[in-house]
């Protein structure tokens, strides 16, 4: 990799982190009267037993390639406030730069991701929850041609969620917000790839440390129907949502390169308006969601893409087997013996 290309990787790393989402977004969360859906740009703030199968993403990349991702994820509760999840993404890319220098189609798995997530605090009355997670993307478990890194990266995450059901104004009560902040670093931040035969300079491949932050604004008709005012049958299952996620390299970036796309120090991100439908079919509890994926700048994408999810709620479907924690009671109130 040339020095210029190595430096450009810093921005590309940030863009990829943003566009691929910042974690296995798969769990819905219930805090008091509030249902936080499994969102797509960022993860929701809770832990649960859930199967995301699949989350589909279409990304028109800045380099003119088109990327179609199928994300599979499974989350299992260990205790009611601690979960483990595993996820991976199959990527199909067209008009992509191939290893031999030509342009064409690429297929492959990205790196395997695992995550341990803990909820230290939640307040049912105020529909408030805070959680934290440690996430690992395991190097050498995916296909390098679709962007899988040969080195492991680690991400520290903090989440929050707040429903506004405790406000006086009735029309504000269906609103809720969630947020996530990630700090990602590589276990192999600097790699010497060779020596430039022309200049004699050492060629360095940098993997920058990246800060990613995102938020969602939700208006739950599910909540409105149960707590404020009845709404017609179909609409009472809907949660219109706007998500936004941004990513920026913060260290180990290297010098700027004029004309590099994405720019070496550039913030990338997307804004994602969409809607979620939470419903049941027979004994199957599920969520369907779809969002437009609007890049905030040229470095974040060539034009708008799309993302969609089909998610199964295992805690509802298999409450006595797959859907309950491995250890202890399902909910804190059950543990407290309040019923």
């Amino acid at each position: 990799m040339s020095h210029k290309a190595s430096i450009a990787c810093a921005g590309a790393f940030a863009a990829a982190a943003t566009l691929a989402g910042i974690g296995p977004a798969l769990a819905h969360t219930i805090v008091g009267n509030r249902v936080f859906p499994a969102t797509l740009a960022i993860d929701d703030p809770g832990v649960n037993d859930e199967l995301g199968l699949p989350m589909f993403t279409y990304i028109p990349n800045p380099d003119n390639s088109n990327e179609y991702d199928f994300n599979f994820a499974y989350q299992k509760t260990i205790t009611y406030d601690l979960s483990f999840s595993v996820a991976d993404t199959f990527s199909h890319m067209t008009n992509a730069l191939k290893p031999d220098g030509s342009f064409g189609t690429l297929n492959g798995w990205k790196n395997l991701r695992t995550q341990l997530k803990y909820v230290p605090y939640q307040n049912a009355e105020h529909e408030f929850i805070v959680s934290a997670a440690a996430s690992f993307e395991w190097g050498h478990t995916g296909n390098a041609s679709v962007g899988a890194d040969p080195f492991t990266s680690i991400t520290a995450k903090v989440f929050f969620g707040k429903g506004f059901g405790d406000l006086e104004a009735e029309w504000l009560r269906p609103f809720a917000v969630t947020g996530e902040i990630d700090y990602t670093w590589s276990t192999h931040p600097i790699d010497v790839t060779g020596v430039d035969p022309d200049t004699g300079l050492v060629l360095i491949d940098r993997r920058p440390t990246v800060l990613t932050y995102g938020a969602t604004l939700q208006y739950s008709l599910l909540y409105m129907n149960s707590n404020v005012h009845e709404v017609p049958e179909f609409f009472r299952h809907l949660i219109p949502t706007v998500e936004a996620v941004f990513s920026m390299p913060v260290s180990n970036i290297g010098p700027s390169v004029l004309g590099a796309v994405p720019g070496t120090h550039e913030v990338t991100g997307t804004v994602q308006p969409g809607v979620f439908y939470i419903g049941r079919l027979g004994g199957v509890s599920f969520e369907i969601g779809a969002e437009a994926l609007i890049p905030i700048n040229r470095a974040s994408g060539k034009h708008a893409g799309a993302v969609a999810i089909l998610d199964f709620f295992l805690d509802d479907m298999f409450p006595d087997s797959l859907g309950k924690p491995l250890f202890g009671a399902r909910e804190p109130r059950a543990a407290a013996g309040l019923y």
Binding site: L222, R280, G282, G283, V284, F312, F313, D316, M317, F318
Partner: peptide
């Protein structure tokens, strides 16, 4: 999952 799921298990929300 859809085949094995019991018929009426989930959180009870006010419809």
């Amino acid at each position: 999952a859809p085949l094995a799921a019991p018929a009426a298990f989930a959180h009870a929300f006010l419809d």
